[in-house]
Design a binder for these strands. Sequence first.
DNA 1: TAAAGATATGTCAAATATGACATAATACAA
DNA 2: TTGTATTATGTCATATTTGACATATCTTTA
Lengths: 103, 103
Amino acid sequence: MRKEKIKKLKSKGWKIGSAGDFLGLSPEESAYIDLKLNLSANLRKLRTEQNLTQIEMAKLIHSSQSRVAKIETGDPTVSLDLIIKSLLALGASKKQLARVISS
Amino acid sequence: MRKEKIKKLKSKGWKIGSAGDFLGLSPEESAYIDLKLNLSANLRKLRTEQNLTQIEMAKLIHSSQSRVAKIETGDPTVSLDLIIKSLLALGASKKQLARVISS
DNA sequence: TAAAGATATGTCAAATATGACATAATACAA
DNA sequence: TTGTATTATGTCATATTTGACATATCTTTA
């Protein structure tokens, strides 16, 4: 489907922080995707800091390696819910989440 | 989490754990739900501060009055994505989001 | 170099979230 | 009261997200 592809291209083409001028996104759309990418990047950071493989991470959140990879690579089919749940599963505190979000 | 709150959540249809057993509530599960409820409450606050009805809010996020009501009442079918998108549509900044989340 | 380990990508059926609608419940004036 | 506006609830077809799987692409180690 076309809409899906565009969505994917958009998120894939992003560099964190450079958001949406290029793709004609509204400020809210940009902010929303930036938020997700920001949290995703932080998830990978947390995971690697804890010396976990994606498979081990997957078990922690009762998911699969491939989905963990999708989370960390900013796949557009990944919800904020899943990202946040994953961060919490890694022991991230509310303050840590807040710090990532406001950055 | 207080008993009162848990009861309310249960009555609203939250399904926590495998059998709806609240004894199995993990720290990250409760943190996740707290996060959503916290953001939902803040959304209502922002909306009313801006003197918007749920119908007006719905137009803002291209949704319906009933879904806005569900967002604000903590309906378990509402995703974090929708809550965050709504907050951003009301003009909430990253810092404001962070503040709510860490509280 | 090759093998092993780790991560990325594509796909799909099942699960979950969605907007929309009808209608009930509540609030608040006239 | 009786209306009128606003918010809550229930339902449902459609849309999106999910874990899982297969397989491809790195990445490291011997």
